[in-house]
């Protein structure tokens, strides 16, 4: 793929002696929406955390939007401006209001004037349907609301790529849908490149262009959602699917 926005080539990573990523080769086209799934400890979170250098890879090459990730801090910060991330535990800043959480990045990193940053923040808060909570502190919101704020916080940076690291795993069951709805809306309306680690297979079927299955640090199988779910090729994929689709 010539227009790949993310290119990972022979990427390897170890945690101590534990080989967590093995020879990962992955090209992601601009605008592509990918769901990564796999058993716990298979390296899927580590994979996407390497894309914005929350984890450091030890071998291989990762190029994001034409910039290779190296030890050069300026490159890392440039890439992080292009890549938004949503975490399992939201990671909102508890000492700041919702609005301040959203304007922090634009004001300090993008040097946007405060008024403009706030206007944009309100726009995204409306988009995730939570604008009436702008002046509250994160602790006053429910888990689902907090995660929607976290999504809006990433969107405020106008990223080209959004990474989702198990965004619904820490939520109470009744709040999963409100977060997934926001993500589906984002996928359908924005045309943004999205990589999402999740076990929400309904979401994968609905929005993913490609589903990637990882096990023991390797990409075992990747395919369109239809082919992946209806006709898995690898034995480990079949076993995994039989375990989560009961």
């Amino acid at each position: 793929m010539a227009d790949a926005i993310i290119r990972m080539k022979d990427v390897n990573k170890w945690f101590g002696k534990f080989h967590v990523l093995r020879d990962i080769n992955l090209d992601v086209a601009s605008g592509e929406r990918i769901v990564v799934c796999g058993p716990s400890g298979s390296g899927k979170s580590t994979l996407i955390r390497c894309i914005n250098r929350l984890e450091e890879h030890q071998k291989g090459q990762i190029v994001v939007d034409g910039t290779e990730i190296t030890n050069d801090l300026r490159h890392v910060e440039a890439i992080r401006r292009e890549v938004g991330m949503v975490f399992q535990h939201f990671n909102l800043f508890p000492h700041l209001t919702v609005l301040e959480n959203l304007t922090l990045g634009p004001i300090w990193v993008l040097k946007t004037p405060k008024a403009e940053a706030e206007a944009r923040a309100m726009k995204y808060l409306e988009r995730v349907r939570i604008s009436e909570q702008a002046l509250k502190f994160p602790s006053q919101l429910s888990g689902g609301q907090q995660q929607r704020v976290a999504i809006a916080r990433s969107l405020c940076m106008d990223p080209k790529i959004m990474l989702f690291d198990e965004p619904t795993s820490a939520l109470d069951p009744e709040m999963v849908k409100e977060v997934l709805d926001v993500m589906i809306g984002l996928a359908e309306e924005s045309g943004m490149t999205m990589i999402c680690v999740t076990h929400e297979m309904g979401f994968a079927r609905k929005v993913a262009d490609r589903v990637i299955f990882m096990d023991l640090g390797e990409i075992i199988e990747q395919n369109t959602p239809e082919a992946f779910f209806d006709n898995p090729q690898n034995e480990r994929t079949k076993l995994f699917l039989s375990q989560i689709l009961h």
Binding site: A78, R80, G84, M85, F87, F90, N91, L104, S154, M157
Partner: peptide, 19 residues
């Protein structure tokens, strides 16, 4: 997670610490 949240926004080390 607070450090990671701040890093993922592209804040520099000193900005992360200060803000």
């Amino acid at each position: 997670g607070q450090f990671e949240g701040a890093e993922s926004l592209g804040l520099s080390y000193w900005q992360q610490m200060r803000l």
